[in-house]
């Protein structure tokens, strides 16, 4: 009974979210909500990594940014149809996740953080330097949206977000997903049970990468341009903040975090151009004083300096 009520409530909420703004909202408000949906998908994909496997990648924005660039390059410069571009995004995201899997195999914890951050930076530097492909600092403009208008885009974005959320929920509750949570708890023990932890981690890295790529495709559809700023590590900070603010390992938390961040950035940027300063301070404060909301994932990182012998 209870789950049925919950389902009805969720459906009613979804209908309200879909119908009400679609009827009365302005194009500007649609854009904001579409943006929130895009970042929510991106943040959920990151939460799959962070919250369900304990993998802390500082290069996750690579999928997002590269997907946007691939769509921009193939549709604008090569005049490919949109679906072909999406196919290319899938190929590229799988290739990138292969690189990250290799790095995961090679390094752990702190090293993984350093190496993934460096990979992220490598892509950022390339986006600014490889002028012929990326358009340099100016980016690649002129991407046409596949959606006829903002209202359709809005409805599509909300539905895609719901699908991504449900899919992720299913994934983490599936038998394979439970193994993944075991990977987070204790890599060695799961390994001894006969599961190939590397294989499971690779699968999540891949799914998470593809979802981030999906967010990137939507992003370039909304904004019509791919610029180096979407590959910048400040994007990593923002996405990290969304997940941590909303609650790591919850899947709905990142959605809340994305909404808060997006609305806050719009409000703050009205007051000052240096709103990133306020974000940064907020992030540091959360890290210092609110560990509870972000507990789970931190446990496995307990200081080797003190507990190395155990």
């Amino acid at each position: 009974m209870k789950t049925k009520n919950k389902l009805v409530l969720a459906l009613a909420l979804l209908a309200a979210v879909l119908v009400v703004p679609a009827l009365i909202g302005s194009s500007y408000i649609h854009s904001i909500i579409i943006t929130i949906c895009i970042y929510s998908i991106f943040a959920i994909s990151y939460d799959l990594l962070l919250g369900y496997t304990g993998i802390v990648s500082f290069g996750h924005t690579v999928y997002f940014g590269v997907a946007a660039y691939v769509v921009a390059f193939t549709t604008v410069k090569l005049h490919w149809p949109f679906l072909a571009a999406v196919g290319m995004v899938i190929v590229v995201c799988v290739a990138i996740s292969f690189i990250f899997s290799l790095v995961t195999l090679r390094t752990k914890n702190v090293y993984f953080s350093m190496v993934t951050m460096a990979i992220g930076q490598l892509f950022y530097v390339m986006s600014t330097k490889l002028y012929a492909i990326t358009g340099g600092d100016d980016g690649l403009p002129g991407v046409k949206s596949i959606f006829p208008n903002k209202t359709v885009f809005y409805i599509a974005a909300v539905l895609i977000l719901v699908c991504v959320y449900l899919f992720s929920k299913r994934l983490v509750n599936s038998p394979a997903g439970r193994v993944l949570q075991g990977v987070k708890e204790n890599d060695a023990r799961i390994g001894m049970l006969g599961y190939n932890t590397f294989k499971f981690k690779s699968i999540v890295i891949q799914i998470s990468g593809l979802l981030a790529g999906l967010a990137g495709i939507l992003y370039v559809n909304l904004n019509g341009i791919a610029t180096p700023s979407i590959l910048n590590s400040s994007m990593t900070l923002q996405i990290l903040f969304m997940v941590i603010l909303g609650g790591v390992g919850t899947l709905h938390g990142p959605v809340i975090g994305a909404a808060i961040m997006q609305i806050a950035s719009i409000v703050l940027s009205g007051f000052t151009t240096r709103w990133m300063l306020i974000f940064g301070i907020g992030f540091v404060v959360v890290m210092l004083f609110f560990p509870k909301g972000v507990a789970g994932v931190f446990d496995r990182f307990s200081q080797p300096n003190q507990l190395r012998k155990e």
Binding site: G280, M287, F301, P304
Partner: peptide, 26 residues
Amino acid sequence: PLRGNQLRQILLTFGLIYVLEELAKV
């Protein structure tokens, strides 16, 4: 204050990049 939790230290210094950079811009 975050001794004993390496990941929180890493994340904090990561956030600090933006604090120090934006502060310099100000």
